[in-house]
Design a protein around this nucleic acid. Structure first.
Length: 124
DNA sequence: TTGTTGACTCTGA
DNA sequence: CTCAGAGCCAACA
């Protein structure tokens, strides 16, 4: 089932980085303002991991977290279903409340709503 | 240590 | 546009 990863568990890990990977992912997701969305791959590129890792990190989010996980969608601008059952429906509802319009196919126009982080990795 | 799974992404048909 | 397969990284048994 859902593995709750508490900050304490992350501290127990033996990582050299001051900020755990999950912490960085959560921080990036928090940077997404209301009315905007981001994709797993975009966040993964920022956190230094792949999209699958981002999804795994969000899946480990505990209840009552400060991370707007609903603003994270796949590359196609669509919501992925999880074991939650009606989670994707709730996610769509929350996004609509933030002012995001869905297409008839329940798709989001990333060209309009995708949030772009400040610094870019390709800025030598 | 290996093998399996996952809220993904890309390419081809 | 939709479907299927392969690749990818991280965590768990």
């Amino acid at each position: 089932m859902v593995y709750i990863l508490t900050p304490q568990a992350e501290q127990s890990m033996d990582q050299q980085d001051p900020t755990p990977l999950y912490q960085r992912i959560y921080s990036l997701v928090r940077q997404i303002p209301p009315g905007y969305v981001s994709s797993y791959g975009r966040i993964g590129q920022r956190a230094g991991c792949t999209a699958r890792t981002v999804g795994f990190a969000l899946a480990a989010l505990p209840a009552g977290n400060d991370v707007p996980w609903q603003r994270v969608v796949n590359r196609q601008g669509r919501i992925s279903c999880r074991d939650d059952g009606g989670g994707h429906v709730l996610q769509r509802d929350l996004l609509e409340l933030e002012g995001i319009c869905f297409d008839e196919k329940e798709g989001i126009d990333l060209n309009v709503y995708e949030w772009i982080f400040d610094d870019s990795p390709e800025t030598p």
